[in-house]
């Protein structure tokens, strides 16, 4: 495992400049926008809560002080970086809370949505994908391919609308929005509310992706020489399938899972908006409409960092599973 250890350290080190780059990108965005950076940090909205123009001016001045906006650019950058790294992602003047608090409060509902979707999508997608890969070429595998392509091409929010239309409005099987009925906060009620949104995310987003990849992967691996050799060796078909085909074809799937965790937030925005789900995605949407810049940027930053970290974690998992990674050839 010594070889792998070096790889882990290397990837970790590579992660750091990435995180820095994202922070710097954020910083550049603040300053690239036309207008006073202080206003940007403040956010452009009808500051009903902040009171009169005098209050506003005071706040703006405070902002300038805190972020050092009167200093030369590189000093500002330094201040910005240190602030971000110490956990101060900004303050939303609209909601009157630090960004970190807002995120902490709203992330749970989003996670409740995302995690089941990934799991379900993975299970269903893998089952169907691997099976159709095994049966390829066949009518079944062509159908699976077609379904996954449609799933790929479907706009998530539209699928949400259609689901609502069919299942809520017409059939009345599931509720239309919200996380729970305010009059009945039981677990069952919550699960009931969870169904449609998760179904949307799963069928329109995660499942097709896993299905497609696992099918392609299984087909490709089945063509490799070592599978043929395994057949020639007279190994039992089951052994060949599990040890030779699956073990090799599931590697890209792991990579995909890592990517998904990052992409899921995008889907979350759509679904949360349509279903009035009180999660982080919805918050982002509201923030975008209201031009609540600090919140937007704070969340953007956090999500980017999350993506970097998950990417790194995925790489490590792959390195553990695949002995070829991180290897340096020994000459003998």
């Amino acid at each position: 495992m010594n070889l792998n250890r070096r790889y882990i350290v290397m990837r970790f080190l590579q992660m750091i400049p990435l995180i820095f780059s994202v922070i710097i990108l954020n910083f550049m965005l603040i300053h690239a926008t036309p207008g006073d950076p202080a206003r940007i940090i403040f956010g452009e909205f009808m500051s009903g809560g902040a009171g009169s123009g005098e209050d506003e001016a005071r706040i703006l001045a405070a902002i300038r002080e805190q972020w050092g906006l009167n200093e030369p650019l590189h000093v500002q950058l330094w201040i910005y970086i240190t602030q971000m790294l110490s956990g101060n992602l900004g303050y939303s003047y609209r909601i009157h809370q630090p960004v970190t608090t807002i995120i902490a409060q709203r992330i749970m509902p989003t996670l409740i949505l995302i995690i089941p979707s990934i799991l379900l999508g993975m299970i269903l997608g893998l089952l169907l994908g691997v099976y159709s890969g095994k049966k390829h070429p066949s009518a079944f595998s062509s159908i699976v391919e077609f379904i996954s392509m449609i799933g790929y091409s479907i706009p998530t929010f539209w699928l949400a609308l259609v689901f609502i239309l069919v299942f809520s409005v017409n059939l009345n099987w599931f509720p239309m929005m919200g996380m729970q009925n305010p009059l009945d906060g039981s677990m069952l009620d919550r699960l009931w509310h969870l169904c449609l949104p998760v179904a949307t995310l799963t069928f329109g987003w995660t499942m097709p992706s896993f299905m497609r990849l696992s099918k392609a992967s299984v087909i490709e691996v089945s063509r490799e020489d070592y599978v043929k050799c395994a057949q020639a060796e007279g190994l039992k078909n089951r052994v060949i399938f599990y040890k030779y085909v699956l073990r090799n074809s599931l590697l890209p799937v792991v990579t995909l899972t890592g990517i998904w965790i990052g992409v899921m937030f995008t889907g979350a925005i759509m679904v949360e908006t349509v279903f009035s789900w009180p999660g982080l995605g919805r918050t982002m949407f509201d923030a975008a409409i209201a031009r609540d810049y600090p919140l937007l940027m704070g969340v953007f930053l956090i999500i980017s960092v999350c993506v970097v970290i998950t990417s790194f974690a995925t790489d490590i998992v792959i390195a553990i599973l695949d002995p070829r990674i991180g290897y340096e050839k020994r000459y003998d």
Binding site: E224, D225, C229, A232, R247, N248, P323, R324
Partner: peptide, 16 residues
């Protein structure tokens, strides 16, 4: 009957 494949590297399962 056994067989020797052309490219040995490819004839062996890379993860075992």
């Amino acid at each position: 009957i056994s067989m020797i494949f052309q490219s040995a590297m490819n004839a062996l399962n890379p993860v075992i």
